[in-house]
């Protein structure tokens, strides 16, 4: 890549991704020609930055309108929680409308630059009732926020809405960041026999291993409910799949049929829209 092309591509990156997808090559070509033609043109970069920001703000406004039409109550709660937890309902930042590498349009008033890029959805083994509950946490926001990492309950029946549709950044999980500890303490039980002798029995973690069921192809709440019911920690990841319909399970790691530790973390890949 020539220095001119690098410079052109750097300027291009001010535009939102969707714009770049349709205009990238022709715009880079134009910029290269323009830079070669008039190397010193101080207004050019500023003009590009301002134009790019205008495109971004139009896009934000448009998607905000879409969002208002399709938003669901839990989502509003979720976004409000995230907005608050990550410190601030401030001005929209100038950085791009993507989260977790996917286009994302925050509602008006949410400090976009304060939103974490990645959200994790955890289904805790102890939180399964009639309606399985999932928890959403924000693992990688600013460190100094006391609310960060707090978890907000989201009902699993809303997971398919949350995953990929309304907040596409959700579910990209930095591995090993689960708030649930995988450690399991053994329990010592003392029993007294009739003769007065004491027997100390060590009870290991309950059912240390189990065979993971195959949930590939199942709809998300069912699969997550089934896995969580077994006691394993479920971590959800968004993936794109050409064969598995949106909202269904693409794969798990470890795979179904594998023998796993009862409290092991199982990564569940859910199909989300492209």
């Amino acid at each position: 890549m020539t220095a001119t092309e690098r410079r052109a591509r750097r300027l291009l990156s001010w535009y939102p991704r969707s714009w770049r997808e349709t205009h990238e090559e022709e715009f880079v070509a134009l910029l290269e020609d323009s830079i070669v033609d008039r190397p010193f043109w101080p207004g050019r970069s500023l003009n590009i930055v301002l134009s790019a920001l205008r495109v971004r703000s139009c896009e934000l406004r448009a998607s905000h309108r879409r969002m208002l039409l399709s938003s669901s109550v839990p989502l509003v709660v979720l976004v409000a929680v995230i907005g608050f937890a990550t410190n601030g309902f401030g001005l929209l930042s100038l950085s791009g409308p993507t989260k977790g590498g996917m286009p994302y349009s925050p509602p008006r008033g949410v400090a976009y630059n304060k939103l974490p890029d990645y959200l994790s959805v955890y289904i805790g083994p102890n939180d399964i009732g009639y309606t399985p509950k999932a928890y959403v946490s924000a693992p990688n926001g600013p460190d100094n926020d006391p609310l960060l990492g707090r978890i907000a309950p989201i009902f699993a029946s809303n997971l398919t809405t949350l995953l990929g549709h309304e907040y596409p950044g959700i579910g990209f999980v930095p591995l090993g960041s689960s708030p649930w500890s995988l450690s399991c303490t053994t329990e010592r039980v003392t029993t007294e026999s009739a003769g007065g002798a004491q027997t100390i029995t060590t009870i290991p973690c309950p059912s240390t291993t189990l065979v993971l069921p195959n949930v590939v192809g199942m709809v998300t709440p069912t699969a997550v409910g089934e896995l969580s019911g077994l006691g394993v920690g479920v971590v959800i990841q968004n993936v794109h799949s050409s064969s598995i319909p949106v909202g269904h399970i693409v794969s798990t790691s470890p795979r179904g049929g594998t023998s796993v530790h009862a409290r092991q973390q199982v990564i569940v890949d859910i199909s989300v829209p492209n």
């Binding site: 134009l30 207004g43 050019r44 930055v49 134009s51």
Partner: peptide, 13 residues
Amino acid sequence: IHLAPGTLYAALD
């Protein structure tokens, strides 16, 4: 008139 690239593409869009 020198049409700056950003302005040109805004108009084209």
